[in-house]
Simulated scan of single mutants.
Amino acid sequence: MATVILVRHGRTTANASGMLAGRQAGVRLDEEGVRQARAAAERLADVPLAAVVSSPLERCEQTARLLLERQAEAPALETDERLTECDYGDWQGRKIADLAKEDLWRTVQQHPSAAVFPAGESLAAMSARAVAAVRERDAAVEAVSGPQAVWAAVSHGDVIKAILADALGTHLDQFQRIVADPASVSMVRFAAGRPFVLGVNTHAGDLAWLAAGPATEAPAQDAVVGGGAGPATVAGART
Rank of each mutant, 00 (worst) to 15 (best):
86 C>G: 12
95 K>P: 13
134 V>N: 04
178 I>A: 09
49 L>K: 09
201 N>P: 07
180 A>C: 12
199 G>A: 10
115 A>F: 02
179 V>Y: 12
4 V>S: 03
7 V>K: 10
10 G>H: 02
207 L>T: 05
151 W>K: 00
96 I>G: 03
108 V>F: 14
20 L>S: 04
87 D>S: 03
12 T>V: 07
82 R>M: 02
36 Q>A: 03
160 I>D: 10
174 Q>K: 15
87 D>P: 01
110 Q>L: 13
51 A>T: 00
149 A>K: 00
28 R>I: 11
173 D>I: 06
103 D>F: 02
227 G>N: 03
65 R>I: 09
42 E>Y: 13
33 G>Y: 01
11 R>K: 07
25 A>C: 09
160 I>N: 13
31 E>W: 11
167 A>E: 06
75 P>N: 01
238 R>S: 13
73 E>I: 07
126 M>I: 11
102 E>Q: 14
185 V>I: 11
97 A>Y: 07
119 A>L: 10
42 E>R: 15
200 V>E: 13
144 V>F: 10
101 K>C: 11
234 V>Y: 03
216 T>E: 15
208 A>H: 00
115 A>E: 01
152 A>T: 01
133 A>P: 08
98 D>S: 08
119 A>G: 12
184 S>N: 06
71 Q>K: 07
57 L>R: 09
178 I>V: 07
45 A>W: 07
181 D>L: 13
115 A>T: 08
104 L>K: 12
133 A>E: 08
119 A>C: 12
93 G>T: 00
173 D>Q: 02
103 D>S: 12
53 V>G: 06
112 P>F: 04
166 D>C: 01
162 A>W: 03
220 A>L: 13
16 A>T: 02
24 Q>W: 11
135 R>P: 08
150 V>L: 00
65 R>F: 11
35 R>T: 14
223 A>P: 09
2 A>S: 12
191 A>M: 13
101 K>M: 13
114 A>F: 10
169 G>D: 06
5 I>C: 04
61 E>R: 15
33 G>V: 04
160 I>Y: 06
233 T>N: 13
71 Q>V: 09
174 Q>C: 12
116 V>H: 12
77 L>W: 03
187 M>W: 11
147 P>V: 02
61 E>L: 15
156 H>A: 00
225 V>S: 14
195 P>R: 03
64 A>S: 10
151 W>T: 00
108 V>S: 09
130 A>W: 05
130 A>C: 02
80 D>V: 00
120 G>N: 07
66 L>I: 09
166 D>F: 01
217 E>P: 04
17 S>W: 02
23 R>K: 03
189 R>A: 00
14 A>R: 04
59 R>E: 02
127 S>L: 08
4 V>T: 08
116 V>Q: 10
191 A>F: 09
163 I>H: 11
60 C>T: 15
123 L>S: 06
46 D>N: 14
144 V>N: 03
137 R>H: 15
105 W>V: 04
70 R>H: 15
36 Q>P: 05
32 E>T: 14
202 T>M: 12
217 E>D: 15
187 M>D: 11
165 A>R: 06
82 R>N: 02
238 R>D: 15
113 S>G: 14
12 T>M: 09
210 L>M: 02
169 G>E: 06
17 S>D: 09
173 D>N: 10
59 R>K: 08
140 A>S: 01
219 P>K: 05
24 Q>I: 04
120 G>V: 11
92 Q>N: 08
56 P>G: 02
132 A>P: 05
7 V>D: 07
123 L>P: 05
229 A>Q: 15
